[in-house]
Amino acid sequence: MRTLKGTDFNDRAKNSIEAKKALLARFQSRPTEDDPEVAARREERRRIVEAREVREAERRRLKEEERARQEAERLRLIAEEEARQAELARQALAEIEAKKNLLLEQKLERDRRYAARKARASGKR
Results as ranks from 00 to 15, higher is better:
A40E: 13
R112H: 05
S29G: 07
D34Q: 11
E66V: 08
L62D: 07
E53F: 11
E95M: 05
D111M: 07
T3K: 12
R74I: 01
K107T: 15
L77G: 06
E53T: 09
K63M: 03
A13H: 01
L77T: 04
A19V: 05
R125C: 03
E43G: 03
E44T: 14
A89Y: 07
E33W: 09
R60L: 12
K107Y: 11
N10C: 04
R120C: 13
T32V: 09
E50I: 11
R120N: 13
E82C: 01
A94E: 11
A121L: 05
I78L: 12
L77C: 05
R67I: 11
K118A: 13
E44Q: 10
R76S: 04
K5L: 00
K20L: 04
T3Q: 09
T32L: 06
E44F: 05
R59D: 07
E43W: 04
A94Q: 15
E71D: 13
R45G: 01
K118D: 15
K118E: 15
P36D: 03
F27W: 12
P31Q: 01
E97C: 07
K20W: 05
L102C: 08
Q28Y: 07
L75H: 00
E65T: 01
R125D: 08
E97N: 14
R41C: 02
Q28T: 04
R67C: 13
R113I: 01
N10T: 14
R125M: 02
L24N: 11
A119E: 08
I17K: 10
R74S: 01
E71H: 10
E18R: 09
A25M: 05
R113H: 03
Y114G: 12
V49C: 00
A13W: 03
E18V: 07
I48Q: 10
A98Q: 13
L88R: 10
P31R: 02
E95C: 05
K63W: 04
R69Y: 06
R30K: 07
R84L: 02
E71V: 10
R2Q: 03
A51P: 03
L103W: 15
K5I: 00
E73N: 12
T7L: 14
S122P: 04
R110L: 11
F9R: 06
F27P: 02
R74H: 02
L24F: 07
L75M: 07
A92K: 06
R67G: 03
R59I: 10
R67A: 13
I96Y: 12
R125I: 04
A68K: 05
R120P: 09
P36V: 05
S122N: 09
K63S: 05
E95Q: 12
A57G: 09
R69C: 02
K100C: 12
I96R: 15
E97L: 05
K5M: 01
R59S: 10
K118W: 06
I17G: 08
R60N: 12
I17P: 08
E66S: 08
F27C: 11
N15E: 08
Q28H: 08
R41Q: 02
R90N: 03
E95D: 13
R26A: 09
E58H: 02
I96K: 15
K5G: 00
I17M: 11
K107H: 14
N10R: 15
E80Y: 03
R112G: 04
R26G: 06
A72G: 01
R45D: 00
E82Q: 02
A72E: 03
R26Q: 10
T32G: 12
L88S: 06
R90H: 07
E64R: 10
R67V: 09
E18G: 01
Q106R: 14
A19Q: 06
L62T: 07
